[in-house]
Design a protein around this nucleic acid. Structure first.
Length: 212
DNA sequence: CTCCCGATAT
DNA sequence: ATATCAGGAG
């Protein structure tokens, strides 16, 4: 629909003005550190991830270090991020896989990244975008919530939302657009108490908050 | 679908 | 006390 297309263009323009320079808040020095940090970021704030990765990457520097470390060692280092048993196990399996399949390097395609233990489409697209500059739609909790509120999708399935956004957003803006939604989601269009009164998109949005 | 789970905001 | 945080595996 033509109206819907124009609305999407307006939304993109306003978000670009509100968040002109977006970059992941996850701290990392190489693709492998970003991969680990992104696995740790599941159901956890970036700030909380950064608080453990400083010490974590000081002690375990590469896939080989993680592969040889015990699960207990990794668990202790990442505990504050939650889901620490699953995450420790996944990061170790992921490191083993990187060594066996890719000589310890992080692969640069979506198909290869999604097959790594502990990393799904969201993790894969974060790594592709931030570490390698390859366009990808990152569907996390913020992107899901806001896409629905703004009517950019009617779907609930993250993969369907990813493909809906791929169709309506120019490819060279996929990464920035998702990061803009995430910053916007943290500051304004929050899950719990959205700040609709100060929202720059309120005229383009039909969502009404029922919790306040 | 359920389970994993600590830290923080409300 | 409860909802939420750059989700993924079984």
């Amino acid at each position: 629909m033509v109206q819907q297309k124009k609305r999407t263009v307006k939304i993109r323009k306003i978000l670009k003005i509100a968040y002109p320079y977006v970059k992941t808040q996850l701290r990392y020095r190489n693709p492998f550190e970003l991969l680990v940090a992104t696995i740790l970021s599941a159901q956890c704030t970036d700030k909380q991830v950064n608080s453990v990765t400083k010490d974590l990457f000081n002690k375990l520097k590469n896939p080989c270090d993680f592969a040889h470390a015990s699960s207990e060692t990794i668990e202790k280092l990442i505990r504050p991020t939650g889901y620490f048993r699953n995450k420790a196990k996944n990061i170790r399996k992921c490191s083993v896989s990187l060594i066996e399949k890719y000589k310890g390097e992080v692969p640069q395609t979506l198909d290869e990244l999604v097959k790594l233990p502990g990393g799904g489409r969201k993790t894969a697209n974060v790594v592709l975008g931030a570490a390698f500059g390859i366009p990808g739609i990152v569907v996390d909790t913020h992107v899901t919530r806001i896409s629905k509120r703004l009517g950019l999708t009617k779907n609930h399935d993250p993969v369907k939302i990813e493909f809906d956004l791929m169709k309506s957003i120019p490819k060279n803006e996929w990464n920035d657009f998702c990061l803009q939604l995430i910053f916007f989601g943290r500051a304004v269009c929050k899950a719990r108490k959205p700040a609709c009164f100060t929202c720059p998109l309120c005229d383009l949005c039909d969502f009404t908050d029922k919790t306040s």
